[in-house]
């Protein structure tokens, strides 16, 4: 019964159903904006990205980014525009430079050092005849 109702409802609607329009005027720019703003931090509610934030400033910045993109600015130029105003804080992807070298490469160094130390220790361990359990 309920199903039938839904079907009827759908049929009735179909007669004057419109097609949902994208919220944005320019879907290409919107897609770029979305991809970019995922990696940007909202300054007001500092725990969300510029893409997800509902803060008025985030809204303004998205508007501004759209304008810049319409003017033909590349993604890098737009990010540079924001960094010039708010600093590296806005980037969720920190730049790679001297100050962040440890951040970016430290974990890999840790992995390599760990692997090296483990290998040395295992070698020593396997070659140590004083250890018991040789043929257990």
């Amino acid at each position: 019964m309920k199903k039938l109702f839904v079907v009827l409802l759908l049929l009735a609607n179909a007669a004057f159903a419109g097609v949902a329009k994208p919220l944005a005027d320019d879907p290409v720019i919107e897609a770029r904006l979305k991809a970019m703003s995922r990696e940007l931090r909202c300054l007001v509610c500092q725990n969300s990205t510029l893409a997800d934030s509902t803060a008025p400033l985030a809204e303004d910045l998205r508007k501004e980014i759209r304008v810049l993109m319409h003017e033909g600015k590349t993604d890098q130029e737009v990010v540079a525009y924001l960094v010039a105003r708010y600093g590296d804080f806005v980037r969720y992807r920190p730049p790679v430079n001297n100050e962040t070298a440890v951040l970016w490469f430290g974990p890999f160094a840790l992995l390599l050092i760990g692997a090296f130390v483990l290998y040395r220790v295992l070698k020593k361990h396997a070659g140590n005849d004083e250890l018991k359990g040789e043929d257990a």
């Binding site: 990696e39 600093g87 969720y92 992807r93 920190p94 100050e99 962040t100 440890v102 951040l103």
Partner: peptide, 24 residues
């Protein structure tokens, strides 16, 4: 750990504020 603490390290060393987020 490094990603979580790095903004704090930078700030404590007076090297400015950065954010370390999902892309990292």
């Amino acid at each position: 750990l490094l990603g979580t603490m790095y903004p704090l390290l930078m700030d404590a060393l007076g090297a400015g504020k950065i954010s370390v987020g999902p892309p990292y």
